[in-house]
Amino acid sequence: MLPFHQVDVFTGEFLLGNPLAVVHGAECLTDEQMAAFARWTNLSETTFLLPPRHADADYRVRIFTTEGELPFAGHPTLGSARAWLEAGGVPKGGHLIQECESGLVRVRCTGERLAFAAPPLIRGGDVDAADLEQVKRALHVADEDVVGAQWADNGPGWIALLLKDAETVLSLSPEPGIGNVGVVGPHPPGCEAAYEVRAFSGPVEDPVTGSLNAAIGQWLIGTGQAPDSYVAAQGTNLHRRGRVHVERLGADIWTGGHTVIGITGSVRLL
C-alpha cells in the first residue's frame, strides 16, 4: 500500500477545480503500473512522486494522462507540490524545486496559494496560416473574433488564440477532432477575473489548465497585451470555478492558485 492524495487544484473550494491523483513513494512502481493506475483513475493527470535524481531538487514527479506520460503540466505541478508538503516535505531552499521530465521547476508559496515559474516554451511564435485556418474551422469561430494566435507549447503542445471577449470564448462549441487548443478572451473591466480561458484536447475540455495559462501569460504579458498581474477564470462551462493567478516578477511569469486536499489514504498498487 502506498500513500495517496487527491488534490483539487486552482480552487479554494473542493469540487470546483481540477482534480489530481498523487501517489507517494512510487520508486517501487514500474512504468506499466503507473500507466495502468492513471488509466484507472480516468483523471486528466495522475502523478507519482519519487526521490530526486538532481541534487537541487526536493522530489521528482512523473506525470501520466490516460494515454501516456507528459514532460510537464501545470495543475499536476501545483497538486503534487501540495501533496508533498502535506506529507511532511520540507524544501531545501527558499523555493520548492520539482524535478520532472522537462527539467527543474520552481514552486513558491504565497500566502494560501502555490505558484510555479513558467518553464521556457518548446515552441512559441506565430501560427502559420494553414494551421490557424484549421483551428478556426474546428472552433467555429469567425475571423473577426480572432485578435491573435501563438504557439504556446511548454510540453502539451498548445496553440493559443486570443478572442475579442470572454463571451465569445464561453460560446464556443468546437468539433471533437480538435487538437490541443487554448482560447482566451477579456472580461469587461471591473469583473472578478480579467480573462476567461478554455482548453480543448480532442473531444475533452480541461477544467483548469496550468500549462496553458502559463504560456498565455508569457505571450500576453510579454507583448504588453495584459497587465503584469491578472486573474483568469476557467472551467465555467463545466460547472467549475477555477481561478488562475498570473504574475510577472522580474524575468519570470508565475502561475498559481489555491489547492485543496480532498482525499487522503493509501492505494494498493504492489
Rank of each mutant, 00 (worst) to 15 (best):
L2V: 03
F4M: 15
F4V: 00
H5Y: 15
Q6N: 11
V7T: 08
T11V: 13
E13H: 11
L15N: 05
N18C: 14
P19H: 09
H24K: 10
H24W: 10
G25P: 09
A26C: 09
C28V: 14
C28K: 13
L29E: 04
T30I: 12
D31M: 09
Q33N: 14
A35S: 13
F37H: 14
R39N: 03
R39M: 14
W40L: 10
T41W: 04
L43A: 07
P52H: 08
P52K: 07
R60Q: 07
R60Y: 05
F64T: 04
F64Y: 15
G68V: 11
G68W: 07
G68H: 08
P71E: 12
G74H: 00
G74Q: 02
H75S: 11
P76H: 11
T77W: 14
G79D: 10
G79R: 08
A81L: 05
R82P: 01
A83D: 07
W84H: 11
L85K: 08
G89Y: 03
G89T: 05
G89A: 11
P91K: 02
G94M: 04
H95A: 14
Q98E: 13
C100A: 10
G103E: 10
L104D: 06
T110Q: 12
G111E: 03
G111L: 05
E112W: 05
E112G: 11
F116M: 10
P119M: 15
P119W: 14
P119L: 12
P119Y: 15
P120C: 01
L121A: 09
L121V: 06
I122E: 11
D126H: 10
A129E: 15
A130H: 14
L132C: 04
R137G: 06
A138K: 14
A142G: 12
E144M: 06
D145I: 00
D145A: 14
V146G: 02
V147M: 09
G157M: 01
L161P: 03
L163D: 08
L163W: 02
K164C: 11
K164N: 09
A166T: 04
L170S: 15
L172C: 14
L172P: 08
S173H: 15
P176L: 03
P176N: 07
I178G: 02
N180P: 04
N180S: 13
P186C: 04
P186K: 03
H187W: 09
P188A: 15
P189D: 12
G190D: 06
G190T: 12
C191Y: 13
C191R: 13
E192C: 08
A194H: 00
E196G: 09
R198P: 01
E205V: 09
T209P: 03
L212N: 05
L212H: 08
A215I: 12
G217A: 13
W219K: 02
I221F: 06
I221W: 05
Q225Y: 01
A226R: 03
D228T: 12
D228H: 11
D228G: 15
S229D: 07
V231W: 06
A232F: 10
T236S: 15
L238W: 12
L238C: 12
R241A: 14
G242F: 06
R243A: 15
R243V: 07
V244A: 11
R248S: 05
D252I: 02
D252V: 02
I253W: 01
T255E: 00
T255L: 07
T255Q: 02
G256N: 04
H258T: 00
H258P: 01
T259G: 04
G262P: 01
T264D: 05
T264G: 02
G265Y: 06
S266T: 12
V267W: 06
V267E: 04
V267F: 04
